[in-house]
Structure formats: structure tokens, C-alpha cells
């Protein structure tokens, strides 16, 4: 009798098993989220800049499916044409901790959506919003700024450097310094 009790209790524990939620179907009527993000910690007056995050970024950053889709889209939309596999080429590197326009996921989404001077095109209206978030989540995973279990694993094809999952976790410098590559018009 006691065995049966223990058995049924341990079956109950299975209820705690939760699979990662994969959201395939983006809401077709959602509009862009209103994120208030500062590019620099500097602001006038004694208090820092006011920021307001919708929390969507965290959802994307902690979801292995979204990051893996972002990795696929990164190649499909030719991000590697300028940024290579994160090491940078004619575009700035994405692996390091220097961010010209901020390294938070909300900053990266804004950079992809709006474009930036000296070459970064705007993808608003060309890449659906949920895919922009996915790409930004993947960019965050390049320097391993996402949780280890969510970062992509080994590649099927040849890839420079270790898989995102095996990279040491990075620290983002908000605002960041401007690398020489970005100071001069190109």
C-alpha cells in the first residue's frame, strides 16, 4: 500500500516537467513594442536615463527555439555579409563587448529595425517583427549573453570557433566605446 502511495506521489512530480514553449505563430496583428532604451548611461540631471522594457526581449533571449531560428535567419538575410560570423568585416564585430548603439537585446532590435549610419540598412517592413527579435536574440548569443541551455549547440557545417553554447559568458558594456572602424565615415 505504501509502495503504491510513493509511486503515485512520484508520478505527480512529472507534472513539474515543462517543455520550453515554442511559439511558432506570431500574432498577426501585433504592432511593434514600445521600448524606451537609452544608448548611453549619461543623461542630464542627477538621475540616470529612464528606461522602459516590455519584457519581450527576455522571452526571446531565454528561448532556444527563437535563438536557433535567429541563427538561421542571420545567414538567410546575409547579416554575415558584413558582420561575418560575429568577428566583423565591413560591419562592426558582434562577438566582443563593444557596442556602438548599445548591447541590450532592445538596442539590437532597434538597430536592425531602424538601421544605423555608415552602412547598417533598415529592415523595417522587410523582416517581420518577430524575426527581428529572433535575430537580435541570436546576436546576443554570439558573445554568450544568453543562458547557456538556450544558446545554439554544435553546427552541422564548418563554423569558425566553438559553438555559442561553449563560449564563455560575456559582459555587455552599456553604451560602449566607439571602435575606430565606426568613427570615420566609410
Amino acid at each position: 500500500m505504501r509502495q503504491l502511495l510513493i509511486l503515485s506521489l512520484s508520478v505527480l512530480a512529472l507534472a513539474a516537467c515543462e517543455r520550453e514553449d515554442r511559439e511558432y505563430r506570431a500574432n498577426p496583428v501585433t504592432s511593434e513594442t514600445e521600448e524606451k532604451i537609452a544608448l548611453s548611461p549619461l543623461s542630464a540631471g542627477p538621475s540616470g536615463p529612464t528606461e522602459q522594457r516590455s519584457g519581450l526581449g527576455q522571452q526571446y533571449e531565454e528561448n532556444a527555439y527563437h535563438i536557433a531560428q535567429g541563427k538561421r535567419l542571420y545567414i538567410w538575410f546575409n547579416c554575415n555579409g558584413c558582420h561575418a560570423h560575429g568577428g566583423g568585416d565591413s560591419g562592426p564585430p558582434l562577438l566582443d563587448d563593444r557596442w556602438i548603439y548599445g548591447g541590450q537585446i532592445e538596442n539590437i532590435v532597434q538597430t536592425i529595425r531602424e538601421g544605423r549610419p555608415n552602412g547598417m540598412p533598415s529592415f523595417r517592413g522587410k523582416v517581420p517583427d518577430d524575426q527581428i527579435w529572433q535575430i537580435a536574440a541570436y546576436v546576443r548569443s554570439m558573445g554568450r549573453n544568453v543562458p547557456k541551455p538556450a544558446a545554439p549547440g554544435r553546427n552541422d557545417d564548418m563554423h569558425p570557433g566553438p559553438a555559442e553554447q561553449r563560449r564563455p559568458p560575456g559582459e555587455v558594456m552599456d553604451g560602449g566605446q566607439i571602435p575606430p572602424a565606426a568613427q570615420m565615415p566609410q
Binding site: Y24, N27, P28, R72, P128, D130
Partner: peptide, 18 residues
């Protein structure tokens, strides 16, 4: 076009806003 994921869930075609 309106709902690719209703037909083939998980397909790589995104839902676009129309």
C-alpha cells in the same frame, strides 16, 4: 499567406502583417 502556421505549424514562412 494569412496563416502559414495554421497549415504547417513551425514552417519557416513567417506570419506577415497584411
Amino acid at each position: 499567406i494569412v496563416d502559414p502556421h495554421g497549415v504547417k505549424p513551425g514552417v519557416n514562412m513567417p506570419t506577415i502583417q497584411l
